[in-house]
Simulated assay, not measured.
Amino acid sequence: MTITITPAASQRMRQFLAQTPAAVGVRFGVRRTGCSGFGYVVDLAERVDAGDSVVEIDGVPVVVDAGSLPLVDGTVIDFQRQGLNAGFVFHNPNATGQCGCGESFTVG
């Protein structure tokens, strides 16, 4: 599994983890949603389930479920601020298209 986290995303994830000591890491994956098929999910992981893959990136444990892994392998996760908005941004080499608002993506 190859997932890259930029320094800005790593810092933001470590802030979330520091506020929730019971979390075992950050869960990253996808769910079916939106007009293009899949949407990203980033949340605190309360546990590691059977079939999950865990990789530590820059001190951040990242938990990915088996179903999401082929869809997010190779993704670069960034955290960006634009005016009053801030959020994670994903650069996924597996995505072949995305909706106009960028909230969901398709794979080929």
Score class of each variant (00 low, 15 high):
2 T>Y: 12
3 I>L: 11
3 I>Y: 07
5 I>F: 15
6 T>Y: 00
6 T>I: 04
7 P>L: 03
7 P>H: 03
7 P>D: 02
7 P>S: 03
8 A>H: 02
8 A>M: 06
8 A>F: 01
9 A>K: 02
9 A>T: 04
10 S>N: 11
12 R>C: 01
12 R>Y: 00
12 R>D: 02
13 M>W: 07
13 M>L: 11
13 M>K: 03
14 R>I: 06
14 R>Y: 13
15 Q>H: 13
17 L>P: 08
17 L>F: 09
24 V>T: 08
25 G>L: 00
25 G>Q: 07
26 V>G: 09
27 R>K: 11
29 G>N: 10
29 G>M: 07
29 G>W: 00
30 V>S: 10
30 V>C: 09
30 V>H: 01
30 V>P: 01
30 V>R: 02
31 R>Q: 14
31 R>L: 13
32 R>A: 14
32 R>L: 13
33 T>M: 15
33 T>R: 15
34 G>P: 03
35 C>I: 15
37 G>V: 04
37 G>K: 05
37 G>Y: 02
37 G>L: 06
38 F>W: 08
38 F>N: 02
40 Y>P: 00
41 V>D: 10
41 V>E: 10
44 L>W: 08
46 E>C: 10
47 R>K: 14
47 R>I: 12
47 R>V: 13
48 V>F: 01
48 V>W: 04
49 D>V: 12
50 A>F: 08
50 A>W: 11
51 G>Q: 09
51 G>W: 00
52 D>S: 06
52 D>F: 06
53 S>Q: 12
54 V>T: 09
54 V>C: 03
56 E>L: 11
57 I>W: 03
57 I>E: 05
59 G>W: 08
60 V>W: 00
61 P>R: 03
62 V>F: 08
63 V>L: 07
65 D>R: 05
65 D>C: 07
65 D>Q: 00
66 A>P: 08
67 G>W: 07
67 G>A: 13
71 L>R: 09
71 L>I: 09
72 V>I: 10
73 D>H: 09
74 G>V: 01
74 G>T: 03
76 V>T: 12
79 F>E: 04
79 F>L: 01
79 F>C: 05
80 Q>C: 09
81 R>E: 12
81 R>L: 13
82 Q>V: 15
82 Q>D: 14
82 Q>L: 14
83 G>P: 03
84 L>A: 15
85 N>Y: 15
85 N>T: 14
86 A>I: 03
86 A>H: 11
87 G>A: 00
87 G>I: 04
90 F>E: 07
90 F>L: 13
91 H>E: 12
91 H>K: 10
93 P>G: 07
93 P>H: 04
95 A>Q: 02
96 T>M: 08
97 G>W: 11
99 C>Y: 02
99 C>P: 01
100 G>K: 12
100 G>I: 14
101 C>A: 13
101 C>Q: 03
101 C>V: 15
102 G>S: 01
105 F>N: 00
105 F>Q: 01
107 V>M: 09
107 V>W: 04
108 G>V: 13
